[in-house]
Each structure stands twice: as C-alpha cells, then as structure tokens.
C-alpha cells in the first residue's frame, strides 16, 4: 500500500503564462490528488499536494515538463508534518 503524503512543491522557472495554474490544477485532478496553490509569481509557485506518495511523485514528473508556454527549472519538495501527513491512503 502506497503511503499518504502531504508536500509543498516550490516550483521555479519561467512560469508567467496564465495557462500554468489551470494546467497544474487539472493535472492534479487527473491523478486524483488534492492541490492548492498558495503563492504565485512569474518565476515561482507554491503548491500543496496531498495523496498517495507515488502519485505525488507523478505530479512532480508531470509538472517538470508542464505546458509548452512554461519552463520549469526546478521543483523543491518539502514534506508537511501536519495532521494530514500522518493519515494513510486507505484511511
């Protein structure tokens, strides 16, 4: 069974295009993940992602490529040690 994870993705790069936010939200939905965007600038975006760890990995993989209008340099991932992080996927 895949562990449940709650993480903050700090995405950096050339992120100015307005297509990026809906793209990220849609990709999270396609993976069945909860995503909330907390901070956003043309070069940086913070997203909180929750779900099974392997799907959180998949979210990173998808976002690294992203839509053609955007260039992602890097995604720094940080686990969030709040209550959600202690739940399990089947809880």
């Amino acid at each position: 069974m895949s562990d449940f994870a709650a993480e903050r993705f700090a995405i950096s790069g050339d992120l100015g295009s307005p297509v990026f936010v809906p793209w990220v939200e849609r990709h999270a939905r396609r993976l069945g993940l909860a995503a909330s965007i907390s901070e956003r600038s043309p070069t940086r975006m913070q997203v909180r992602i929750e779900g099974p760890a392997e799907l959180v990995d998949a979210m990173e993989v998808g976002c690294l490529l992203g839509p053609i209008e955007v260039w992602v340099d890097d995604i720094a991932r940080e686990p969030l040690n709040d209550r959600a992080a202690n739940r399990t996927a089947d809880a």
Binding site: H27, E54, V61, P67, I68
Partner: peptide, 22 residues
Amino acid sequence: DPGLEIPTRADMTSIAYRRWLK
C-alpha cells in the same frame, strides 16, 4: 506537453528527454 498523459516516476527518463528537447 504531458497534459493528456499520465507520466509517473518510472517515466522520469522520458520526461527528462522531453524537457531537454523543449
């Protein structure tokens, strides 16, 4: 743009290759 695909960690090499092409 992988918006109609579902790459996972196993596809990391594919994604790195596509990033490099892009």
